[in-house]
C-alpha cells in the first residue's frame, strides 16, 4: 500500500537553516546537512528545502548546498524559493535535487510550470500554493503570503495540474504557525479537484493533526517545520502513533 509521507521542511537563508534548535546528537542545527541527515535517520520520507535568501549573490550558495545535500542523503528532496526560470531549475537538478517547487513565479508566469515539466518531467515540478480564507473564499497569495491575488485556490490548483505540475504543496496561511491542525476543508477540496498528489502544510501542532488530515482528506503527505525542528514531535514517535491509528506509513 502507498504510504502517507511525513515531510520536514527546512528554511534556508544564506546556506544556513533558520529556526533550527540543537538536537542532543547533532553539533549544529544551523547546518542544513546535519539536520537533513538527522531527519533521514529518523525516517523522514522526503525533505523540502525552502530558500528564503534575499540577495542573488547568496543564491549561489544554494546550488552548493544542494550538491552537498545530494551527496549525503538517500531520500528524495525538493528545493524551492526564488526559482524563476528553466535555467534556475537546471542548476538545482544538476546539483542533485529531485524536484523543484515554484510559487510566486508560477502565478506571475504560469508557462514556467509547463517549461519545467517539458524539460525535466512532470514529477519534477511541485506547485506550491499559499492560500488564505478571506471574505468567504480561499484565495491564492504570493511572496511568502504578503501579496494577494485574484486567484481562487481550487481553480488555480486545477490550472497548475493542467499546466503540468506533478504535485501540489498546499499551505494554509490561516493555519500556519497556529498549531491547531491542518486546514481540512481546503486540503480536501483541492485534493479532490485534482488527480495529482497533494501535500498538506500549515498548522500541525500535534500528532492527531496528521491523523486527521490523512483520514479526512486525500492528501498523500503532511509537511511541517517547527514541530520537527524544535523536537516537539519526533518523527519516529509520529510514525509509531500513525501506525497504531491504522494509517499506512513507512
Amino acid at each position: 500500500m502507498l504510504k502517507k509521507r511525513i515531510i520536514p521542511c527546512l528554511d534556508i537563508k544564506d546556506g544556513r537553516t533558520v529556526k533550527g534548535i540543537n538536537f542532543v546528537d547533532i553539533k549544529d542545527a544551523g547546518d542544513p546537512i546535519e539536520l537533513a541527515k538527522k531527519y533521514v535517520e529518523e525516517g523522514a520520507d522526503e525533505l523540502v528545502f525552502l530558500d528564503i535568501t534575499a540577495t542573488l549573490e547568496n543564491r549561489k550558495t544554494l546550488v552548493d548546498l544542494v550538491r552537498a545535500v545530494a551527496q549525503e542523503i538517500n531520500i528524495p528532496f525538493t528545493v524551492g524559493g526564488g526559482i524563476n526560470s528553466v535555467k534556475d531549475v537546471q542548476k538545482i537538478i544538476k546539483a542533485g535535487a529531485d524536484k523543484v517547487s515554484v510559487n510566486s513565479s508560477a502565478v506571475k508566469r504560469p508557462a514556467l510550470i509547463t517549461e519545467i515539466a517539458n524539460q525535466f518531467g512532470k514529477q519534477c515540478v511541485v506547485a506550491a500554493i499559499d492560500t488564505k480564507f478571506e471574505n468567504g473564499e480561499w484565495k491564492v497569495f504570493t511572496h511568502g503570503g504578503k501579496t494577494a491575488t485574484p486567484l481562487n485556490t481550487v481553480a488555480w490548483a486545477k490550472e497548475v495540474e493542467a499546466l503540468g505540475a506533478g504535485e501540489i504543496l498546499l499551505t494554509s496561511m490561516n493555519n500556519d504557525g497556529m498549531k491547531t491542525g491542518f486546514a481540512i476543508d481546503i486540503t480536501q477540496e483541492v485534493s479532490e479537484a485534482v488527480n495529482i498528489p497533494v501535500i498538506a502544510s500549515g498548522g500541525a501542532g500535534e500528532m492527531e493533526h496528521f491523523k486527521a488530515v490523512f483520514e479526512k482528506t486525500s492528501a498523500t503527505g503532511g509537511l511541517a517545520a517547527s514541530i520537527f525542528h524544535y523536537g516537539e514531535i519526533p518523527i519516529p514517535q509520529l510514525k509509531e502513533y500513525l501506525k497504531t491509528q491504522k494509517i499506512a506509513v513507512r
Partner: peptide, 13 residues
C-alpha cells in the same frame, strides 16, 4: 488509468 492519484509518488511495499 486515472482512478487514483497519478503519478504514483511515494513509498510503497
Amino acid at each position: 488509468p486515472p482512478t487514483d492519484k497519478v503519478p504514483h509518488m511515494g513509498w510503497n511495499n
